[in-house]
Design a protein around this nucleic acid. Sequence first.
DNA 1: AGGGGTAAACGAAGATCTTCGTAGCCGTGG
DNA 2: CCACGGCTACGAAGATCTTCGTTTACCCCT
Lengths: 129, 129
Amino acid sequence: MPKKKPALPRPTDTELRLLNVLWHHGPSTVREVWTHLGSDVGYTTVLKLLQIMREKGLVLRDEQATSHVYAAALSETETQTDLVGGFIDRVFGGSASRLVLHALGSKSVSPKELKAIRELLDQAEHDGK
Amino acid sequence: MPKKKPALPRPTDTELRLLNVLWHHGPSTVREVWTHLGSDVGYTTVLKLLQIMREKGLVLRDEQATSHVYAAALSETETQTDLVGGFIDRVFGGSASRLVLHALGSKSVSPKELKAIRELLDQAEHDGK
DNA sequence: AGGGGTAAACGAAGATCTTCGTAGCCGTGG
DNA sequence: CCACGGCTACGAAGATCTTCGTTTACCCCT
């Protein structure tokens, strides 16, 4: 069985924005992250956030180059799975289906998405379990 | 068209616990909420929390009786819809179907739930949009 | 009237988050 | 060789959250 992970702290909303940059652009320097973020935060703010996120284990950093390169510790998918799990527990008392109900209701879901979801269902059902 | 609401602040995890009590037990006094919460927080902590939540508009209070009675400002369903909407935006870039994918993966979903979800889909498709 | 019990209100402390100014380091161009 | 630009590190401020001790108000019973 898979070794149990130490379990990282849940990223804050702001941290999530930085992680999104790292996921979509790959390992990046502070300046790169800062640039992709638009100009609503200062450079040193981004630096500090990344330093703290590193202490928390949310990101890793390569110090080879003069400008350190940061990378997300967990993939976007892994993080999403973690977040969804906690969210279901906190907000829906553990019921995934109730979450889906609201997911379908809160945002208008395109027919295309409906189709995709339906396929997921077929898939899930087929896997048994 | 429906009047736009002022939009309440997103409740914190702790506030969500209190709201859950109010939703499941109906309007309650501080003592009642405190009791249902188990003994991991002090009475005055619960009181303070409810006072602040009131300032935020998350709960309403009836001051008729000596012991004030607090009630959730929004129903559980309304709150869940709000939270899911924001969650989809923050974590899944607005894609509801990606949320559903993870919802089906993060927790094991019973066949019963799968069936329920499928019905929701039919429903959603029927409503068009 | 006095005393006990329960409730709300207040205030403050400690934790975490987000923000950024400032200082120190280092390589490069002039 | 030294100033400059870009980088990391540090520290601190202000906001919000969570916690509770203490105080104040009210009511009822004797």
